[in-house]
Computed example of a mutant assay.
Amino acid sequence: MPSKYLCRVTSRPMTCDDKIWEQWYADEHIPDLVDHKSSTRAAFYREIFDVPDLYAHNQGEDKNKFMAIYQTEYEDMLTSDGVKAIRHTSDILPDKANLKNGEFDNRNYELIHEFDPNGLGDTPAPYILYAELELAEEKELDAFYREERFPMLAKVPGYRRGLRYKLGPATPMTVGSPPKFVAFHEFEKVHGITDSQEMKDVMTTPWTLKTMAGVTFANIRSWELVKAVGY
């Protein structure tokens, strides 16, 4: 069972290359947050490609190419005692003060729906399709996911699980005004995300076309796992 809350942080390095950034996150930062009980489980991802062919409304302005997701019992993880206790400097990074080495966008979310057709539970997903959708009719969006989108995605090769969240309290590291809802679609392999006929079927149903016609904002991105801790 996933934790009630999720902290999602996208980032990009400003003082070092991607390899050093991945090393800092994988070897120090996400293990620290799990060890100090701010996060129950954490995973770090790198972006692999854009998916503009799936949606006509890709409007995301976040250019950060790394994403950390933290399962947590805190509505705002950054205010937890564990975050205060972790190391805030590093010998891995050029600037000893961690946060001065990159740009970050932090968001808090609350879980509203778990779709786990195979009973996998909380195991780290090798690939994630991340989908922010803004629709005026919130009940319509919820029904769309529960009654069609998730059941159809279960037929896509390599599909693992889907998690939907609603936006929680903003933090000093939250950039802009994020959409209210996000879905994390977990996959075993990257092929199923874009190339399978089953995925094409998902994207061309009458309900999908109707929903996307009413979408005022969409941001769809794909990610591959670098490191998971606490699973």
Rank of each mutant, 00 (worst) to 15 (best):
K139F: 09
K200D: 08
G168Q: 07
Y145V: 11
F217L: 08
T89A: 03
T79N: 10
D76V: 13
T72H: 03
T79I: 04
I69L: 09
Y165W: 06
E61F: 11
R41A: 13
Q71H: 05
P206R: 05
D35C: 03
P117D: 00
A43Y: 12
W207L: 14
T15C: 11
V229A: 05
D91P: 12
H88K: 07
Y25Q: 05
V190G: 03
V229I: 11
A228M: 01
T194M: 10
R46Q: 04
K63N: 12
E28N: 12
F184S: 04
W24S: 03
E137N: 10
N106Y: 11
P179W: 09
A154S: 15
R149G: 04
Y109A: 04
E148Y: 01
V226M: 06
E138G: 05
S38W: 02
A218W: 01
M173W: 11
A85E: 13
G176K: 05
M212V: 11
E137L: 12
T204L: 05
D50P: 06
T10E: 08
C16P: 00
E188K: 15
N64G: 11
I92K: 02
R8D: 13
F150A: 02
D122G: 02
N98P: 00
E61P: 00
E140C: 12
D27V: 14
D17S: 06
D105A: 07
T79C: 00
P117H: 07
I220P: 02
A228T: 00
K227G: 04
E188H: 13
Y5K: 03
K180C: 03
Y231M: 10
S90A: 00
H29R: 02
M152Q: 11
V182I: 13
P151Y: 09
T204S: 15
N108K: 00
G214I: 13
F104A: 02
T204D: 15
D18L: 01
A136S: 09
N118S: 11
K227P: 03
